[in-house]
Design a protein around this nucleic acid. Structure first.
Lengths: 331, 331
DNA sequence: GTGAAAGCGCTAACAG
DNA sequence: CTGTTAGCGCTTTCAC
């Protein structure tokens, strides 16, 4: 194995100099630097990660804690994972994955053993069991999502409130004056799911600001329920020409349901969805998507900043991006 | 920070004794062991991962290399990831993830830096760019899948040949004497995709062994193509009452296609699929699934064995498991 | 701008 | 069955 001492000897410098060339933690004359670089290259030297972690008190590892419930939306999750890994590499860090079953105990083990320098927690729930251990450990963490008690934590999330509002703005921009909101199953709101409530609130507030009529209803995941909700929305607002849907499972039934009620999409009713991009693209729905790549990247950057001693904002909300597709046209 | 020396002092033993209690690498009297254990508990000691990796020449980390092409079948992949993490923990190892974009270079970096003790490579392709670096590095690796040149490598895979045969056995067991095989798009066979070819070969061989008639055809991913292939299969064998489908994308069209040709499933034609379990369950299809959990677990165990110096078999083939559902009935 | 040297916390060989 | 001790390869003071 080729060590830093070998490189030092080969380059005719001290080991510390090689170290400093590598870390850039003190200035090195260009001549020395290039000589060291050349030796590193010639000898094929790669610093030993263990030794480095040990001496430097930095593992150069970020632990990525996967969602508690599997399968929420796998493609989006995978994209977050990928973007986290890519972003982490830019900061010279590798990514350790932890799964739900490792729980709080696993977090403590990894933290206490200094196996990771920081934690990234995906798909955080309002009352998340992983939050308490995060508060106790010396390493910083960044949450993707927003727990109920976020005090003292650093979170990144899509700005769901703005997402709801953005949909209204889009519809208003197209000339619609009566809009509806088809939400998640009522149980989702009952259990205080943060993002669902915020989306609806954003929708309602935007409609109020624009001075237009709005109605909102939850819907279960079956055709009957969706049809019933659509019927109720149309009864409340017979002139409804714009519909915002925040319910992935219902998306499949919405167009058919509207059709059954005598409304064609997009001629009679413009539909805007808030859902993963694949869903929307496949069905050609105008939509606000979950910015998976950016979520992952920003989370890593916030963590890297904290590791570098730069304080991070408690909450980073990503602006929603609306993609206009075939399901919404001017009225 | 609480170190091994603190524990040793607290328990009134030497640091090495604590180490041996932890690793179990030499016998310790029950009294000493329990005293040390108690001190560890009281002091809340967790060994420093970096120091351990450094001194022991063991990072206790396995690198999991994700598939090159994303999205092949995410649920199955996620299940493999989860089972790998779970199994790795049983061997006191954590899991580092590497994504496709890190490529061969990333593998070399992680290997040379001794960041991981071994590599697990998912979804290996016949001519996989990740294979050459694996051969050069000192750490052992286990591949999930089978590359063309597997010489000297350790692989785990579903026994696709047996899977094809198993479907035939199932149909024959139900009394079917004329069976068809609807395969992947022809391009898949053209590019020598190992598992596709092996599945078909297993299907054909089993039919031969049982002395029954069989016909096989590829099918593209659209309804027209599936319908055409089904029509051709029925023309070749008008008495066909059993169909094996190895084409996820086509699955959605098969039942409708058979219906359009006047055959009801399962009364007229029994259908057996080779596909991820979710697909089959959702559509109530009899199927042979990809044993994701077992694949991950076995891969870890093989790697752990190699790390412990036990030579591993070059190829571990997992027996296919058939789940009988509504799409296949006795004739 | 560079070198020398002291550990970091743990493991494993050596000794008893 | 247990204690003593010598590093592992790197970072980081301290010194020049």
């Amino acid at each position: 194995m080729v060590t830093i001492a070998d490189v030092a000897k080969h380059a005719g410098v001290a080991p510390s100099t090689v170290s400093y060339v590598l870390t850039g933690k003190r200035s090195i004359s260009p001549r020395t630097r290039s000589r060291v670089r050349e030796s590193i290259r010639q000898l094929g030297y790669h610093p030993h990660a263990g030794a480095r972690a040990f001496a430097g008190n930095r593992a150069n590892v970020v632990a990525l804690v996967l969602p508690l419930r599997p399968g929420v939306h796998l493609p989006a999750q995978m994209r977050i994972v990928t973007s986290v890994v890519t972003a982490a590499r830019r900061h010279d860090m590798d990514v350790l994955i932890m799964t739900a079953d490792q729980g709080a105990e696993g977090l403590r083990r990894v933290a206490a053993g200094a196996r990771a320098d920081g934690f990234l927690v995906m798909d955080v729930e309002l009352d998340d069991v992983r939050v308490p251990p995060l508060r106790e450990m010396p390493q910083p963490s960044v949450l993707i999502g927003r727990p109920a008690a976020a005090k003292g934590l650093v979170c990144v999330d899509l700005d769901f409130e703005a997402a709801g509002a953005r949909c209204v703005e889009h519809l208003v921009g197209l000339g619609h004056r009566h809009v509806g909101f088809l939400g998640a199953p009522s149980v989702v709101y009952q259990r205080n799911t943060g993002y669902a409530q915020r989306t609806m609130a954003g929708f309602g507030a935007a409609a109020m600001r624009r001075g237009i009529a709005s109605t909102a209803l939850p819907a279960e995941d079956d055709y009957e329920s969706v049809l019933g909700a659509l019927r109720a929305l149309l009864r409340a607002q017979p002139a409804m020409t714009g519909l915002v849907v925040h319910n992935e499972a219902a998306l499949g039934w919405v167009v058919a349901g509207l059709r059954a009620l005598g409304r064609k999409v997009p001629e009679d009713v413009a539909v805007v969805a808030i859902c993963p991009d694949e869903y929307a693209e496949q069905r050609q729905l105008t939509s606000v998507q979950l910015p998976a790549e950016e979520l992952g990247r920003r989370a890593v950057e916030l963590l890297a900043a904290r590791l570098a001693g730069v304080p991070a904002p408690a909450l980073t909300l990503l602006a929603p991006k609306l993609s206009s597709r075939a399901s919404s046209v001017p009225r």
